[in-house]
Design a protein around this nucleic acid. Structure first.
Lengths: 177, 177
DNA sequence: GTCTATATGCTGATAGAC
DNA sequence: GTCTATCAGCATATAGAC
């Protein structure tokens, strides 16, 4: 955007941080406004609804992550493709932990407003991982992609929430094997 | 209990089924009562609150699963310990898919009423998996346990929700490697 | 664009008859 | 033990001044 709206970004950041800690439904618009330092009316000036706001947050985070791992795969050498993709994913979480936490908590949920785009991105993740498995000469069925996806999601979550001291390479090694 | 309360069980089943599809917070007590075929008052006769009800549901499901995989590990041969544990976990999901889905969706959430017991069971899962990894002569750090846990959770979810035709052994093979 | 004040609907929970 | 009727609070969203 040519003229970035500063309030809008403050609201988005506060919303991500609060939802990462408390979950989306437990986060009220009043809290978001207060944490962002704006009035509630300003939240609704920038976003159509709470739902639309989180939908945007999640969709953006997922799209960035999907692009990131796809690009990583393109530059990866055969034999280290899976590790390269996993590393790219975990580095994405490092850059925006709050968004990562929100997405992780929503990943398993069905029947959510943003579920459609979430399912679409899930497919992107799976097919990228399948390609990476092929490049490394490994089994590459849907269940294999699911296993790697689950592993990197859980390891990333564990690292961000419970074990911040875990090194990136240790996390990669565990999730990519 | 000597005299099992039939209404109570109907309510619990309906609550699990609804939450598996829509998530806990999106499921109202009115819906639960209606689906169970009882009045809302009967729900509150059997349970102190909606929160207490789901707390029980989740705690029970996790405890059963933890006991199940611990028992599986005790009977497993060295070299196939991880696969045996994963198989036991996935069979548990087969027996009660709704509960499995609810737990999966809650696994990544913090700041929930039942979070304390959830975190405790998470530790049980991790240490059991670490023991299994040791028995198989594999790396067994926390991140390795997290990777296997995430893999079996995601593969189980995938199998229950999106790919029911996936065979148990294929799922085990993908999640246990 | 940002604010305050207000409306509206829904949801968890209770009271009390049967 | 099960029901119906009702309450009280809260959260999303809007209206309208500045």
């Amino acid at each position: 955007m040519a003229r970035p709206n500063v309030s809008r970004q403050k609201v988005l950041d506060a919303a991500a941080e609060l939802a990462a800690a408390k979950g989306i439904s437990a986060t009220t618009v009043d809290e978001i406004a207060s944490a962002a330092g704006v009035a509630k009316g300003s939240v609704y000036y920038n976003f159509e609804s709470k739902e639309a706001m989180y939908s945007l947050l999640i969709t953006d985070a997922l799209e960035r992550a999907a692009l990131r791992i796809r690009a990583a795969l393109n530059n990866a050498a055969d034999g280290t493709a899976v590790a390269t993709v996993v590393r790219a994913f975990l580095m994405g979480i490092d850059e925006h932990p709050a968004a990562g936490k929100v997405v992780a908590t929503e990943m398993f949920r069905l029947d959510r407003p943003w579920n459609e785009s979430l399912a679409a991105q899930r497919d992107v993740f799976f097919s990228t991982l399948q390609d990476a498995l092929v490049r490394d000469g490994r089994e590459s069925s849907v269940s294999d992609a699911a296993a790697v996806f689950g592993a990197m999601l859980m390891v990333g979550f564990e690292r961000v929430v419970f074990s911040p001291s875990m090194s990136l390479e240790r996390a990669v090694a565990s999730a990519a094997r």
